[in-house]
Design a protein around this nucleic acid. Structure first.
Length: 210
DNA sequence: TCATTAACACGGG
DNA sequence: CCCGTGTTAATGA
């Protein structure tokens, strides 16, 4: 775990701090599709993603989902930082997009380190900023793009975070992530296939252009 | 016009 | 058979 931490966070955090994180943090491995945290769950600590990717979703009263953004290796989750100010419950759902590994740092420790280490403070602020940026981007797609636009952006985002143009997914999953109906997703996907942008298979989509 | 819901047929595992 | 997929028809915003 120490090695992976060094590889993923060595650029931003000094090695003393990496040692401390390795000692204090809890290592965790999750398989693709695993529900890591749900709305209302107590926040266990500050998560640092080492490998893989995680989907961050918002959930409505009916339990329907909507994707906000993806976390990648080297990312943390800004929502958990609310714990610094006494927010104890999660307002989002986190699902593993791939097999992933992460370190969970106790919140009190993280809070102390923000005071003690300038590079950790920098990391937290930067992380908060990039998360906010992604949130704004998510709002942009909602407000300015139609479903066709949102779907193509969604596909290229998934290609980016998974590092492959082969997406193991179903139309229903995409519909859930975009908070729309499967019928529309199927129709637009078919349209994209006719345009030569993608190739459709059962449980799989090949993205040719993105 | 474009999305949603319901309903159905097809086909692969 | 069950599930994912592709399509249609009716209805709504």
């Amino acid at each position: 775990m120490r090695t992976t931490l060094e590889e993923t966070y060595g650029h931003v955090l000094n090695s003393d701090l990496i040692d401390t994180i390795a000692a204090q943090g809890k290592f965790m491995e999750v398989r693709k599709g695993t529900l890591i945290m749900d709305v209302g769950d107590p926040i266990p600590g500050l998560p640092l993603l080492l490998q893989g990717a995680i989907k961050i979703l918002r959930v409505d009263e009916q339990g329907d989902e909507m994707l906000i953004y993806f976390l990648e290796a080297g990312d943390s989750c800004a929502m958990t930082l609310g714990s610094f100010f006494g927010v104890s419950k999660s307002s989002i759902r986190a699902v593993a997009e791939q097999d992933s590994s992460l370190v969970i740092v106790p919140m009190e420790k993280a809070y102390d380190w923000v005071g003690e280490y300038s590079d950790f403070r920098q990391f937290v602020i930067e992380s908060f900023n990039t998360r906010l940026q992604e949130l704004v981007e998510a709002m942009d797609s909602l407000a300015f793009l139609d479903l066709h636009g949102r779907l193509t952006k969604y596909l290229s985002d998934r290609v980016k975070v998974n590092g492959t143009t082969t997406l193991d997914t179903t139309h229903a999953e995409i519909a859930a992530d975009l908070h729309t109906s499967r019928v529309v997703v199927s129709r637009i996907l078919k349209q994209l296939e006719r345009e030569g942008t993608i190739e459709l298979h059962r449980n799989r989509i090949e993205v040719l252009e993105f």
